[in-house]
Amino acid sequence: MSDTKKHINVYQQIITSGRIVIASMTICCLLYGLALLSFGRLVMQDSADGSLILNDHKETIGSELIAQGFTRPEYFWPRPSAVAYNASASAGSNFSPTNPALRHRAEAIITKMEAKAGNPIPADLVSASGSGLDPHITLAAARYQAARVAAARGLSDALVMGLLEKSAKSPGGPLTPDPVVNVLLINMALDRLKK
């Protein structure tokens, strides 16, 4: 192949590349995106917009899928979060098992929740989630807090326990035997009891 021919070849290839860039962006970004946006809007509008939860005044109070911080005794508390439940900057702690910081964080929670060797705390209450936004705790972790919540609200333990049993779900059915509780939803249910 002569030099001029090679030149023309590369020139043509640049044109072709440019045309494929335009075609693939139009189809794989614009049309693909629009088709899925419409599908989401038509079929699953609520979850397509982020599974937001509104109160009676139509104000957003959170998302069913996203943990929010709870510190008051009358609410169930979520797992610790490395990002303080900031839903616009997700992250885990990235502490390694040999990092003393991980142990110190667990010790602080153990002191706060008054866990003892005879009544050990469920591990999810001292382990941060990967996203910092895990909306769930295990049923065991919820039961662990039930007495505190009941006392703070002046409710009977049995009532709170009953509410927990009702709202606990196994995320994978028989494939995940450990049931979990959505913290925001259970706390909303508690608030509704009051009224």
């Binding site: 946006l37 979850s47 397509a48 917009d49 104000e59 929010q68």
Partner: peptide
């Protein structure tokens, strides 16, 4: 999408949590 993954061009949502603080919830396509 059927499993609940968001698909929207709306910007972040602002929520007022049960304990009264603000939570900015990032979302997107």
């Amino acid at each position: 999408i059927l499993g609940g993954v968001p698909m929207t061009l709306l910007g972040a949502a602002t929520a007022k949590t049960l304990e009264g603080s603000l939570q900015i919830i990032a979302r997107g396509p």
